[in-house]
Simulated assay, not measured.
Amino acid sequence: MYVCSCFGVTEKQVKEHAEAGASTPRQIASACKAGTDCGSCVRRIQAILGRGNCPRRELLDQGMPALAAEDAVVELPEAA
């Protein structure tokens, strides 16, 4: 099955690159150009790499909203 229609990259090829050490969509793109043209395949590549889920969403689903919120908090400096 084709993952990237622009460059004719198959799911098998993406998995082979992942087995060879590519662990991000950018590394897959460096190996075979998948995801570098229209970008419509990047989410599929993320899913193949196991990066399709949001860690914060998983925490919320497990009933740990405090931990998920802790990751999302950004402290801004106080105005002088």
Rank of each mutant, 00 (worst) to 15 (best):
residue 3 V to K: 00
residue 25 P to E: 03
residue 10 T to D: 01
residue 43 R to C: 08
residue 16 E to S: 07
residue 76 L to R: 15
residue 4 C to S: 04
residue 31 A to W: 01
residue 44 R to I: 06
residue 74 V to T: 14
residue 33 K to I: 05
residue 58 E to R: 12
residue 28 I to F: 03
residue 31 A to L: 04
residue 48 I to H: 00
residue 45 I to E: 00
residue 61 D to Y: 10
residue 21 G to S: 11
residue 37 D to W: 09
residue 52 G to C: 05
residue 73 V to H: 08
residue 69 A to V: 11
residue 30 S to Y: 13
residue 22 A to V: 01
residue 7 F to S: 10
residue 10 T to K: 00
residue 44 R to F: 03
residue 40 S to V: 13
residue 80 A to M: 08
residue 40 S to M: 12
residue 73 V to W: 10
residue 48 I to R: 01
residue 18 A to L: 05
residue 73 V to N: 09
residue 70 E to L: 14
residue 44 R to V: 10
residue 24 T to N: 05
residue 35 G to L: 04
residue 21 G to H: 06
residue 65 P to I: 12
residue 9 V to M: 02
residue 32 C to T: 05
residue 27 Q to M: 14
residue 54 C to H: 09
residue 3 V to E: 00
residue 36 T to L: 06
residue 18 A to W: 02
residue 60 L to H: 12
residue 68 A to W: 03
residue 38 C to D: 14
residue 60 L to S: 08
residue 29 A to H: 13
residue 76 L to Q: 11
residue 15 K to C: 07
residue 45 I to R: 02
residue 54 C to Y: 03
residue 14 V to P: 00
residue 62 Q to E: 14
residue 6 C to P: 03
residue 35 G to D: 01
residue 19 E to A: 15
residue 27 Q to P: 03
residue 17 H to Y: 07
residue 71 D to K: 11
residue 27 Q to T: 08
residue 52 G to T: 05
residue 34 A to W: 01
residue 60 L to P: 03
residue 80 A to I: 08
residue 65 P to A: 12
residue 42 V to W: 03
residue 79 A to N: 07
residue 24 T to K: 04
residue 35 G to R: 00
residue 58 E to K: 14
residue 36 T to I: 09
residue 11 E to C: 00
residue 59 L to A: 05
residue 33 K to N: 15
residue 1 M to T: 11
residue 5 S to V: 13
residue 56 R to W: 04
residue 38 C to F: 13
residue 72 A to I: 08
residue 2 Y to T: 14
residue 25 P to S: 06
residue 64 M to C: 11
residue 50 G to A: 12
residue 43 R to M: 09
residue 66 A to Y: 08
residue 47 A to E: 06
residue 65 P to C: 10
residue 48 I to Q: 00
residue 18 A to N: 04
residue 8 G to M: 08
residue 35 G to K: 03
residue 63 G to T: 09
residue 36 T to G: 09
residue 4 C to F: 05
residue 28 I to T: 07
residue 78 E to S: 10
residue 17 H to I: 02
residue 14 V to N: 01
residue 64 M to R: 15
residue 50 G to T: 11
residue 62 Q to T: 08
residue 3 V to P: 00
residue 23 S to Q: 12
residue 53 N to H: 11
residue 53 N to K: 13
residue 76 L to D: 09
residue 21 G to Q: 13
residue 27 Q to G: 13
residue 61 D to Q: 15
residue 6 C to T: 08
residue 38 C to A: 13
